[in-house]
Amino acid sequence: MSTNTVRRPELRWMLDDVLLPEVRSAVVLARDGLVITATGEISEADADRFAACLASLRGSSAAATEFCGDSSEAQPAWNQTLIEFDTGYIFLIAAGPHAYMGVSTTKRVDMGPATQRFHAVVQKLGTELGTLPRSGDSDRS
């Protein structure tokens, strides 16, 4: 595992809690689209690609808030995005300040308990990620 300035592999044990039956993989990413930690059936290169894709998805989702609110109210906050495929689901959930968790599951996942578990994990991650340094700040001379 590399130790660049964004990755925090020590958080992986926390993320491992999402690995219920029918969960393929999960990635925690910073708002800038770089991987914080990843788990499950995914290579390092694919975790990088998944994270970039999720960051873009989150950007598009946030841009869509404009179309989901009362014009008199403040902009609604984005909480999660769910994508359904023939072959499964991808969940993208806010996990603390400027961090997100993406989870890939098969179609057979038990939605109720799974989403409950995912939200419990982002709660814990959110507390831990409150201390996340801004990416790229700490190791450049």
Binding site: S2, T3, N4, T5, D32, E44, A45, G136, D139, R140
Partner: peptide
Amino acid sequence: EVYLPDTVRTAVK
């Protein structure tokens, strides 16, 4: 190289 070696890295976005 496809895999990142085990050294300290700076991610530049």
